[in-house]
Design a protein around this nucleic acid. Structure first.
Length: 436
RNA sequence: UCCGGGCUGGGGUAGUGGUAUCCUACAGCCUUGUGGUGGCUGUGACGCGGGUUCGAUUCCCGCGCCUGGACCCA
């Protein structure tokens, strides 16, 4: 008996059935918007991540030297890979590039609520459009995913912010501000107390009054964003506000504006975002971590050696992640149970007839099982029950003497006979009711 | 890497310095013609290593894993 590796999980059929439904919903939502599925390698050169994030990142990677002496790492995220793919075919890919991909990623971290060392994400990105409609479309997919999974606006907070507003505000102060550090402080705001927060802001270069003023501006209402530009006199802030308002206007047209809460205190920890950013949280706070985040990152492709290419996207975690936790908390997690349309129960030497019926039913697209263990009637019935068979078709020697089979509805227990030649016949989904 | 809580058959549990209770699950049989709801039988556990002890599942130490948190979250 071997142990499972720390931070990795098994998914047994009942549990996986529920996860499958969730993944299908997420992917289908993206496909309906025209996002095309791609597949990518599980390993990349370690340098791809070190160049992007610095040498410290190796600590959090599953990285090693392969037999050819190459330094490789299991992919901790999709973005660098996708950037590489976009750069490699920059000229020939029609824009906008809209891609979706669900797959596992690996990070060598300590497992916590909703965080494992192997986790699955669906990445949804648009490359090649800087238009606010692109930001809004990504946000619309995100909201449609949430509502498609059965959540309502009461269940989640979808917070929208803008990196350029934050950096513009910071730069408008007469101070030598480390914008990166200050934004990181904003991102941590909810986790730390007031004093610590102010300390971080002053460490970043603001004086106490400026920090206070900055924090106050972050709490500006959505319909008064314009005052930020006036107060600071910053053209950068004015442009960023205009951009955010354009995105929200498109979101209105796309039917998702009502789900969005403008919240400038949402910053995301990531350094590479350049415009609109958004993050989704459990409205009750029971799931303490972010459910997913996303935003615009216009400089990344260029950073990977391509032409300047605007990009916007997000990546909900599926399987080992906070999204399932939110769905469970909200009571919309799919049933964790197997479903089986038909079980063909064989009594005596009736395999050939049972097999013929099974093939016909499978042809029609149903989930059909029959005995492969030569078990007794009672044992087969018990098994049919354990796999939640909806209908059991009893193919027994006695019935076959009259050219009949017995059709049993497992929920009610009612059963009746049907002519074997007419089962399933022309019927798409024959049940007890068709013959009663 | 650090801090807290935990670890008894597959799952859930009782209990103890002298090898372990019950429920459930699984398999077979009673029952080649009826499951979810009967009976019988079987399978199966003290996370791993070391220490103390005549004897450790129990006490001590280390490690592993689970769980929650810090850091990090690209």
């Amino acid at each position: 008996m071997y142990d499972r590796i720390k931070g990795f999980r098994d998914f047994y059929p009942e549990e996986m059935a529920a996860h499958r439904e969730v993944i299908d919903t997420v992917e289908e939502t993206a496909r309906n918007y025209g996002f095309r599925e791609i597949a990518t390698p599980a390993m990349e050169p370690t340098a791809m991540y070190v160049d992007k994030s610095g040498e410290e990142i190796v600590e959090e990677l599953y990285s090693f030297e392969d037999k050819g002496g190459r330094d490789v790492a299991l992919t901790p995220e999709l973005t660098p890979t996708v950037a590489r793919m976009v750069v490699a075919k920059q000229q020939e890919l029609p824009k906008p590039i809209k891609w979706v991909s669900t797959r596992p990623f690996w990070r060598y971290e300590e497992p916590q609520q909703g965080r494992f060392r192997e986790f699955y994400q669906t990445n949804i990105d648009i490359f090649g459009s800087s238009d606010p409609s692109a930001d809004a479309e990504v946000m619309a997919v995100a909201v449609d995913v949430l509502t498609g999974l059965g959540l309502t606006s009461d269940d989640f907070d979808f917070r929208v912010s803008h990196r350029d507003i934050l950096s513009g505000l910071l730069e408008s102060f007469e101070a030598d501000v480390d914008v990166q550090d200050a934004i990181r402080a904003v991102d941590k705001r909810a986790k730390i107390d007031e004093e610590e927060y102010m300390d971080l802001l002053t460490d970043a270069g603001l004086n106490y009054g400026q920090a206070d003023n900055f924090d106050e501006m972050l709490h500006t209402d959505a319909d008064e964003l314009g005052t930020l530009a006036e107060m600071t006199g910053s053209a950068d802030v004015a442009a960023a506000v205009e951009n955010l308002e354009a995105v929200l206007s498109a979101a209105e047209d796309f039917g998702v504006r009502e789900y969005c809460t403008v919240s400038l205190t949402t910053a995301r920890g990531l350094d590479y975002y350049t415009g609109v950013v958004f993050e989704c949280f459990d409205s009750t706070g029971e799931v303490s971590r972010s459910v997913f985040g996303g935003g615009r990152y216009d400089d990344l492709i260029e950073g990977f050696g391509g032409q300047q290419t605007p990009a916007v996207g997000f990546a909900p975690g599926v399987m080992n992640s906070t999204l399932p936790l939110l769905l469970q908390r909200a009571g919309v997690w799919p049933e964790e149970e197997l479903s089986t349309d038909y079980y063909l129960l064989q009594v005596g030497d009736t395999r050939s007839v049972a097999a013929r019926i099974a093939r016909d039913l499978r042809e029609a697209g149903h989930v059909v099982e029959t005995d492969v263990s030569d078990r007794s009637f009672g044992a087969q019935m018990g098994y049919a029950d354990s796999i939640n068979a909806e209908t059991v078709v009893i193919v027994g020697e006695q019935d076959l003497e009259n050219d009949e089979v017995t059709v049993k509805d497992m929920e009610s227990g009612d059963q009746t006979t049907a002519p074997v030649d007419e089962f399933p016949g022309d019927r798409d989904r024959p049940t007890y009711d068709d013959f009663a």
